[in-house]
């Protein structure tokens, strides 16, 4: 069977609860059952307890300068709700689970995650519902449409009186 890799990213701030949730024995066990063989954490500024597992290879890094490569080499990305991270993963056409940080009040990034999941581009959940979400069928997700990069440039040219 193919070796499946998970990339977990919490962005530039911290999301200790997510790292702790994925490190739980319960989740790790179900990941093993689902056929995953390695997990790479990007931990940001938070503190965490390193865990290890006989079958699943778990590694931790604070940040990545080759963020894009980390996405490319993974089969599933679990991310915080940051717009930047979400977009990068969606554009790379990788299955994505967005985990919402309920401890952040007035969090408009939740708005985006909900919306993108309604459109069928990703799944979103909280730390408590992560286990069920991991078992969902990622083949049902729709690919994120490629944007025409010139729309804004053309619009601005017109507004400024160019052409």
């Amino acid at each position: 069977m193919k070796q499946k890799h998970i990339f977990v990213t919490v962005g530039t701030t911290q999301f200790e609860k997510l790292i702790a949730a994925i490190s739980e024995e319960d989740i790790i066990k179900s990941l093993e059952k689902l056929g995953y063989s390695s997990i790479q954490f990007q931990t940001g500024n938070g503190t965490y307890v390193e865990t290890s597992h006989p079958v699943i290879d778990i590694s931790y890094n604070k940040y990545f300068s080759d963020f894009q490569e980390q996405i490319d080499r993974s089969d599933l990305v679990i991310s915080h709700a940051g717009a930047g991270s979400c977009l990068e993963v969606l554009k790379s056409k990788k299955p994505l689970i967005v985990v919402i940080n309920e401890d952040l009040m007035d969090n408009h990034q939740t708005e985006l995650a909900k919306h993108l999941s309604e459109k069928g581009y990703l799944y979103y959940c909280t730390c408590d519902t992560l286990k069920e979400t991991l078992e969902k069928d990622f083949n049902l997700l729709k690919p994120y449409p490629v944007s025409d990069g010139n729309i804004f440039a053309d619009y601005l040219d017109q507004c400024m009186g160019f052409q």
Partner: peptide, 16 residues
Amino acid sequence: IRIVFVESYCRVHTFS
């Protein structure tokens, strides 16, 4: 001076 504002991508239902 022309001012062009683009609302952030994460704003789906409410304005900043």
